[in-house]
């Protein structure tokens, strides 16, 4: 079984609407219905309610591309790289994606020819290996839906 690099942000299991794609660990406010990512217990960003109002809500790993950028210049912060994980290297692609369940996220996009990425492109989540050693560590990416 693979280890998740950021288990607080996503899970292997999908949702009913996107069963084959890892879900994102969001939250929903029981008071006003606001859906947010990532899950937090500080308070609702819309109505300000806190406590039991903020419930975990699995967000489908599917959405629509708003924008993308290929990053050419990047120096990883050595202190921020986890043990046994290969540091991110430029070039890589960042996408702004509006999730079908509401929140807009910015995330790494993989398996793409960035010159053909257009807004409105359907995007799906995927776990990709990022480990260097014997442990199998995976992290979340988005890819264009085929």
């Amino acid at each position: 079984m693979a280890e998740l690099l950021k288990p607080d942000l996503y899970a292997q299991d999908g949702t009913t609407s996107a069963p084959k794609h890892p879900s994102l660990k969001g939250g929903k406010c029981a008071h006003c219905g606001f859906v947010f990512f990532p899950l937090q217990a500080y308070g609702c960003e819309v109505c300000g309610q806190s406590g039991d109002c903020l419930q975990p809500f699995a967000l489908a790993g599917s959405g629509t591309l708003i924008a993308s950028a290929k990053v050419h210049a990047y120096t990883p912060d050595a202190k921020a790289v986890a043990a046994d994980v290969k540091p991110l290297e430029a070039p890589f692609v960042i996408g702004t994606i509006k999730l079908d369940d509401g929140p807009t996220i910015r995330t790494l996009v993989t398996d793409v020819d960035e010159t053909t990425l257009k807004r409105g492109q359907r995007m799906m989540s995927k776990l990709v290996p990022v480990g260097t050693g014997a442990r199998t560590i995976v992290d979340l990416r988005f890819i264009p839906a085929s």
């Binding site: 990532p38 924008a67 990047y74 960042i94 702004t96 910015r106 807004r119």
Partner: peptide, 20 residues
């Protein structure tokens, strides 16, 4: 924590705005 904020420098934030 965040999915990729450490990989999104200011110039990438605005490169995304430019693409949009």
């Amino acid at each position: 924590s965040s999915l990729a904020n450490d990989a999104i420098a200011f110039f990438t934030h605005y490169a995304l705005l430019m693409d949009q």
